[in-house]
Design a protein around this nucleic acid. Structure first.
Lengths: 315, 315
DNA sequence: CCCTCGATTAATGCTTCCCTTAAGTTGTAC
DNA sequence: GTACAACTTAAGGGAAGCATTAATCGAGGG
């Protein structure tokens, strides 16, 4: 399976014809057909079949198409990325968990970028807790911010605490929550689907079953749903402070809460760490960073905004 | 540039040594070194340089690494994807804009999946408005849900209206908003960074400059910030209804609002459309779907939750 | 200063890609 | 049924990938 073959496949699938794909590539039809044949042999699937009005995808072909398309796209991107690397700001990738991504990551990187005189081009990526260590160890991220990382993948990584907070249960101020917390309805952000998160650790301790959990796209949405009284949510106390102050939400006293937790910054050891990673690691220890983590509550200008990217890794 | 070369590069970068990479691949050192040399020649960059304690990345190398890593990962995924395609549920990819992704996409797909007897494996991807048409046209998405799609890329696509709503300006009930809207502080979700979105269309019409805009990670967060009185936000009236009912927010009467808008569903024309795409397209016209779009407000069970994925395309 | 380890280069052969032209084969249309 | 268009197969050749062994280069350590 080569990139050339994948490119041919993608073009045929999109244009619906070998002839057109060959024309687009500037080669003969058999060249394209042969590339297809090689892929079919490799995968043991016809991928594309001849039909009235063009070639149509088989089940296997339709799975392959988005993957192949992305590979081809990345191939083009690779060239551009290396070409533009010189004379351009250093790049830094921060991997974070979903709770941090939502409120803290953008303002933090915004502050860091400003402080570094715009000479560092930083961006954040979301990952599950269990993947943070792997991302850093494999240099797919320069720095990770999240819970303390333990386990095999974290061996040899440099992991230090940077911020303490406490997790509380919140709900509508007008509702009473009775009975065992295990039977409440829990409205959570995606951290509720991350087995390594502090949130899920708390819920497991309370004996909440999966059926009692509903996942919302983000914490604010989960809190908003909790504010309407249909269930309870989990929040870092200092992040939910505005909602508490406005009495949209109230803390629900619960066994095991407030649960104190600590964010750690994880990097490669000093001798293998990039300069930019070093800067960010030090920045996270400064009062300015502490301030942003404590009360991040602000947006960023459109020009600085970067959509969050989910990061995954080859297993 | 081949996948084998990229794989060698990734391993050397991660392991910090040609020798270890060669051992991991089960080949001789020169084989790896040669692959590296080919990449260096291709990109005109050393990519990795010898240093005490291992090989270190150049600026270009550090740009290439994440891209190469993903390409290699996708290569492995491609095999698995095709192999597992047969005897497994049909797959459907829905491309949506950020506003829809936040509230509507998950409940909608959840309802659709249930209705189709779990025989369709649906997932949603975020994209900018301008990319929706391209994604559908290139079969990277089966269905798009968003504004009406016009322009070259939408030529030959089937685009029909499915839902009407109206856009309003919201702010804290306790604040007065005076003067020209162009000078207010606007707190927006990522749609505020999408040139094709209805939100930005409204703001342009009001003459709001980029400096007056702050982007938050999601609508709920932007509304929450607006509720604290530091600025105003934009919302679909029916989606912000809970916050209005609880008096956390109030509608701010503004020139040009309420602005009516209409979501459209876009697919390939009938003869090129997959069965699953057809089902979803019809489902979106049913009262059940309408109901979900009107008041989606609920989470999904952890087992069904899928993190949103940003989709991009090769230009 | 010399030795050693690790990266690279050189020289070589086998295999695979990838393009070509020419000759089928298949499916649709009239 | 025949014609046509489009996909596929066949055969051949040049280029590049990818592996080998052997030799060379360069930095650290004794």
């Amino acid at each position: 399976m080569t990139l050339g073959q994948l490119n041919a496949f993608v073009l045929v699938a999109r244009l619906g014809s070998v002839t057109d794909a060959a024309k687009a590539l500037g080669v003969s039809e058999p060249a394209v057909s042969q590339a297809l044949a090689a892929l079919r042999l490799h995968h043991g699937d016809k991928l594309l079949t001849k039909r009235a009005g063009g070639m149509t995808l088989t089940a296997g072909g339709s799975r392959l198409l988005p993957i192949a398309s992305q590979m081809v796209a990345l191939g083009a991107e690779a060239d551009a990325a290396v070409r533009q690397a010189n004379g351009v700001a250093a790049r830094l990738q921060l991997a974070v968990t979903s709770e941090i991504a939502e409120f803290v990551a953008n303002p933090l990187l915004e502050a860091f970028t400003r402080r570094s005189g715009n000479s560092i081009d930083a961006s954040a990526g979301l990952a599950r807790t269990t993947e943070l260590a792997v991302l850093v160890a494999n240099r797919l991220a320069d720095v990770a911010l999240g819970p303390e990382l333990t386990g095999d993948a974290a061996k040899g990584l440099d992991c230090v605490p940077v911020f303490r907070g406490s997790l509380v249960v919140v709900g509508s101020p007008n509702s009473r929550h009775q009975g065992s917390p295990a039977h409440w309805r829990w409205l959570l952000d995606p951290a509720g689907a991350d087995p390594g998160s502090d949130t899920l650790r708390l819920l497991r301790r309370l004996g909440v079953p999966d059926e009692g959990i509903q996942i919302f796209p983000n914490q604010t949405a989960a809190w908003s749903a909790a504010a309407s009284g249909v269930g309870v949510s989990v929040a870092l106390e200092h992040l939910v402070a505005p909602q508490l102050r406005r009495h949209e939400l109230a803390v629900v006293p619960t066994r095991g809460t407030p649960m104190s937790l600590c964010w750690h910054v994880t990097t490669l050891p000093t001798d293998r760490r990039s300069g930019a990673a070093n800067s960010l690691r030090h920045f996270l220890g400064t009062p300015a960073a502490m301030q942003v983590m404590r009360s991040p509550g602000s947006g960023v200008p459109p020009s600085r905004f970067r959509p969050p990217v989910y990061v995954t890794i080859w297993s």
